[in-house]
Amino acid sequence: MSAPAICTRDVTRDFQAGQQTITVLHGIDLDIKAGEMTFLVGESGSGKTTLISIMCGILWPTLGEVKVFGTDIYDLPDDELVEFRLQNIGFIFQQYNLIPAIDAASNAAVPLIAQGMDRAEAREKAVAMFEKLNIADQADKLPSQLSGGQQQRVAIARALVHEPRLVVCDEPTAALDAASGRRVMDLLREVAVAEDRACIIVTHDNRIFDMADRILVLEDGKVIHDGKTMPETH
């Protein structure tokens, strides 16, 4: 049995709201495996985004430990954590956050360019990724010239172009109709899930729950369900 891709121990996160301290996550212990698609579901405000942010190294837990592929990421010095994210993590943001002034392929190539790869070479790899996503013909277009769905595929390409070992994705289907949502999920399963890669998807879209390999339900900052399918009550 191989070690888990992500391992959280007693992860707790507080936020300061004025005088009050609110605890958003209460001692989360999770092991997440590579090679499958893990859904993080729960009602609005249950702490999904907070948890995924902590698991991918962009939000410090108040307490607890997070290991990503064996590395205790919050034990790293700041600049090493940044470098760790650059090498190991692919992000798919809900709002895509593409850079409007550069074309689609360059946008998708950003992680490689940031790693120091030559721009032309990085773009080539991005275009290769576009082929898998069926948007190779859009490579030279600016984000504003693409449809929302195409922009999302560019964002997916950007998350995968540098072959990260962990892919995180916040609400990929929130803005899509049921059919498009399923298509994107199929696509993600096809390109993002791999033997040595963990893929975590935050969603509260019940139309796609059947596509998960594992579902974790969060409620008030605690994991209340962990299984292949949703619990009956939902």
Binding site: V82, E83, F84, L86, N97, A114
Partner: peptide, 17 residues
């Protein structure tokens, strides 16, 4: 462009860059 800068920071662009 703050969203884009934020995304770059998350992806792993260093403060030096």
């Amino acid at each position: 462009n703050i969203k884009q800068f934020g995304a770059l920071k998350a992806i792993g662009v260093t403060n030096r860059q």
